[in-house]
Design a binder for these strands. Structure first.
Length: 564
RNA sequence: GACCUGGUAGCUCAGUUGGUAGAGCACCUCCCUUUUAAGGAGGUGGUCCUGGGUUCGAGCCCCAGCCAGGUCACCA
């Protein structure tokens, strides 16, 4: 492995620590007595008292016999003060002069014991009496400095590196950590809300023999023992409904779903959806539930129902307007497409310059119209309701209009945040809808739903009238934390693999073959034998020595090459 | 998938007509006992994303590729 000079220095320090009898990776637990945030929050209670803290050293300011450093624990950052004569009693002051000043580095994890005080400039600090090395860091950490105005300098900002090495991102960019803390606050708020109402959190299969419940291309895998294909779920809807058939009256699941489609800043191949099903309810009830849920989520995570999202301020205060989709299309395009047939819709799309193709049925065409012409208008939370039957194969027919369904999508900031129905529980109707989907797929729609016979069998036993909802958790987190990219709210967003170290080149392989023919070679003879140009020779030999395949040594004024 | 932009030191970035690879921070040596983007003096550090090509000479020009971000398309 090729080490940078900075890494060499840190490894040398590591050995020196061991020579001094200090284990750089001790096994014992290190018992702390306080947290940094706790001290800063009630400084008066801690001032003059002794504390034990542990964390990562983030910066250092050495001034001869005294030094300041910044310690970071899970709760925050705080300055520590190290004074040679207070830290050490021995003549040499090894702990201060050697260990702290020479052998420790930014990024090392240390434990300290000392007293809390305030510096002359007024900064909360700990005067360190004992210092313990807890883990030596061998890779240099990017140093992000913040000035008096709170402006960051030399921020670790390259998105590729931030996502690939999220651990570094989390260490040096505090606001990144805050986003993920908020993410957990959001899911906690939702769980609290549901658990208070007695809803049951459940787990259903991720590996499914039939990928149902949504329209999307699945990831495929194979079970060896059963010798059968399996799919990573694109939704868990059909399994949760089976549980409603089984007699649970309210179940929910935070589900990782997987869709084998394009990636962009709002789509990751694996993402999280919270699905909830409640028996004896309809989609009107579900809208009210959703409003109060999101109001609580906003309050719990941001302390306010009003949240900044990009250029906008979005209010999650209930209630939200209800707008039937056909009305939305009428408002934003001027066309009344209610009851319109496929050719008619296609004409409307054409006149609005919306691209359509032959595989699109009535449902997809209306979906397209709404998506292109209307969706982006709904910044404040709005329920778009009553979608046409063709685009909602799992939804109950509308009580007043057989062409529509009892479905809503919640739009926020021009994007879909949730999708909910009065669930279709008529098994005969459901079978017919699946068959219509089958026709679509024969027409070339590769996203039409598969028929799940076991799900139909379950419905035939009778499912109570039920309302269900799916909420995109990643999107919700993006809204609540004002992030425009899904990658910012996933710890480890999907990335293409990093380029692997280049394989040994042809030239280097040739030299290796020559090296194998003798115990050692005089460098110039080997070079002549290889028949390589100066440039290629140099490059190939450097490659070999760098990868520790060959070694060059000097004896009696001759350079020799040996195989390692 | 198409187009645009980018890839240079550990980090953030300069790099002129193609002519010995630079800065700040970090790091190393030295000075400095309440500093704080600490300061002062000196120094080390490079696969210029990869592979070809043009050229006396390429970080720079040309071709191909890899990775990322953005826009669009596809897609919830």
């Amino acid at each position: 492995m090729q080490l940078s000079p900075l890494e060499e220095i840190r490894r040398a320090s590591l050995s020196k620590l061991r020579t001094l009898g200090i284990n750089p990776y001790p096994a014992e637990a290190f018992k702390t007595t306080a947290t940094i945030a706790g001290i800063c929050k009630s400084f008066e209670d801690f001032e003059g008292k002794e504390v034990v803290l542990a964390g990562r050293m983030m910066s250092r300011r050495i001034m001869g016999k005294a030094s300041f450093a910044e310690l970071k624990d899970a709760s925050g950052r705080m300055q520590i003060y190290l004074n040679r004569d207070e830290l050490c009693s021995d003549e040499e002051a090894v702990l201060y002069n050697t260990v702290f000043k020479k052998l420790l580095d930014i990024g090392d994890i240390i434990g300290i014991q000392g007293t809390v005080f305030k510096t002359q400039v007024g900064e909360y600090s700990v005067n360190v009496k004992t210092l313990t090395v807890l883990a030596k860091s061998l890779k240099p950490l990017p140093v992000v400095k913040t000035d008096a105005e709170g402006k960051s300098h030399d921020a670790f900002s390259d998105p590729e590196q931030r996502y690939r090495q999220r651990y570094v991102d989390l260490i040096v960019n505090d606001q990144v950590k805050d986003t993920f803390i908020k993410r957990t606050k959001i899911t906690n708020a939702i769980r609290e809300f549901f658990n208070e109402r007695g809803y049951l959190e459940v787990e259903t299969p991720i590996l499914q023999p039939i990928p149902g419940g949504a329209a999307a291309r699945p990831f495929t895998t194979h079970h060896n023992a059963l010798n059968m294909p399996l799919y990573l779920r694109i939704a868990n809807e059909l399994y949760l409904k089976r549980l409603i058939v089984g007699g649970f009256e309210a179940v929910y699941e935070f589900a990782k779903d997987f869709r084998n489609e394009g990636m962009d800043r709002t789509h990751n191949p694996e993402f999280t959806v919270m699905e909830l099903y409640v028996a004896y309810k309809d989609y009107h009830w579900m809208m009210e539930m959703t409003e109060s849920l999101l109001e609580k989520v906003a309050l719990d995570t941001n302390g306010s129902t009003e949240v900044p999202i990009g250029e906008h301020r979005v209010s999650f205060k209930a209630p939200y307007p209800r707008v039937p989709i056909l009305e939305a299309i009428k408002t934003h395009t001027g066309y009344d497409v209610a009851g319109m047939d496929e050719p008619g819709l296609r004409d409307v799309c054409r006149s609005l310059k919306i691209e359509v193709d032959e595989t699109m049925g009535v449902g997809k065409l209306i979906d397209e119209l709404f998506g292109e012409a209307c969706e982006h208008h709904y910044i404040q939370p709005t329920f778009i309701t009553d979608y046409p039957k063709e685009m909602s194969p799992l939804t109950k027919e509308h009580r007043d209009n057989p062409a529509l369904t009892e479905r809503f999508e919640l739009m926020v900031n021009g994007k879909e945040l949730a999708n909910a129905y009065s669930e279709l529980n008529d098994p005969i109707d459901q079978r017919a809808r699946f068959e219509a989907q089958l026709k679509l797929s024969e027409k070339g729609d590769d996203e039409a739903m598969f028929i799940d016979q076991d799900f139909l069998r379950a419905l035939e036993y009778g499912m109570p009238p039920t309302s269900g909802i799916g909420i995109g958790i990643d999107r919700l987190v993006m809204f609540m934390t004002n992030n425009a990219s899904i990658q910012e709210v996933l710890f480890f967003p999907q990335m293409k693999p990093e380029r692997k170290a280049p394989a040994v080149s042809e030239e280097a392989k040739g030299i290796l073959e020559l090296l194998k023919t003798a115990e050692k070679w005089v460098l110039n003879e080997l070079k002549a034998q290889s028949g390589l140009s100066n440039k290629k020779w140099d490059k190939a030999l450097k490659e070999l020595t760098r990868n520790n395949l060959a070694k060059v040594s000097k004896t009696d004024e001759v350079l020799e090459v040996i195989l390692v």
